[in-house]
Design a protein around this nucleic acid. Structure first.
Lengths: 139, 139
DNA sequence: TTAAATGCAAACGCTTTGCAATTGA
DNA sequence: TCAATTGCAAAGCGTTTGCATTTAA
């Protein structure tokens, strides 16, 4: 479901700023920060403001069109919501982000529910650690 | 190993402010924020300053005497480092924090290493979700 | 036409920092 | 004694907000 269409259906206005924010989110290789989105927006729309970016991201989050992930940086990152959830393995040395299929977390989810009676929300996990390359270098 | 002793051995000064920060960390039922530590310090040491709390926490972190955990709040929380690691299940509704033994995460750690060649650092995980009580209420 | 959306500037909350004064060892 | 530590004030950073202006529908 395109962001454009959802906005339209729900009666939100399609503004150039919103379109550019959405475009930046879609074009991003990986997860993108508000600041990075703003840079792209500002390049094409010099009078735009970062508060518009934040307001648009808030709207898109509310509509479940984007998700927000905290990678343990000082800022939060965004990406377009996908049907099949995935997670992130973040190398603490090189910052590399490896996508992790949600199925890898099913066993954990089961244990938490069975043993701790806790329904874990594992939709947006970022697991810190060390990737194979950095581990090789260190050894 | 007491914080006091480590500081002394490493040649750091034992100041009343540092002692009170350490005391607050030890007395805390659960994970405590810098602001909460400062409130306790300030009550006994009116001229103290929160920057001292942050500097002390930074020092204690560096010495591996306290750990910092991000529960997804706007601020980070601290607690004294323990021999046996544990993790946290944080209820997104009532904020309840359930301690999770690290053994629950061993299987996940294994999968990540085997299938993704990724050495996960699962020492300080906070998993968001819904506790049993809140789930009952909702149903 | 008009409510929604924007730009701007200022504020916010948490954290960090420069610097002069204080203090533990 | 004197370098380490502190208090203070200000800044830094990402994010939010109030308000007047603009704009999509």
């Amino acid at each position: 479901m395109s962001c454009h269409k959802v906005l339209q259906e729900k009666g939100y206005r399609i503004t150039p700023q919103r379109m550019l924010v959405i475009e930046a989110l879609h074009n991003a290789d990986s997860h993108i920060s508000a600041e990075e989105i703003f840079q792209q927006l500002h390049a094409r729309y010099p009078y735009s403001n970062i508060s518009t970016v934040y307001r648009t991201l808030e709207l898109l989050k509310k509509l479940n069109l984007v998700t927000e992930t905290d990678f343990g940086e000082e800022r939060v990152r965004y990406h377009v919501a996908e049907k099949s959830h995935h997670h992130h393995l973040v190398c603490r040395r090189c910052g590399r982000v490896i996508d992790l299929d949600e199925s890898a977390l099913y066993p954990l989810k089961g244990v938490l529910l069975r043993d701790y009676d806790f329904e874990a929300d594992l939709r947006h996990m970022a697991i810190s650690g060390e990737c194979s390359e950095c581990r090789k270098k260190r050894e």
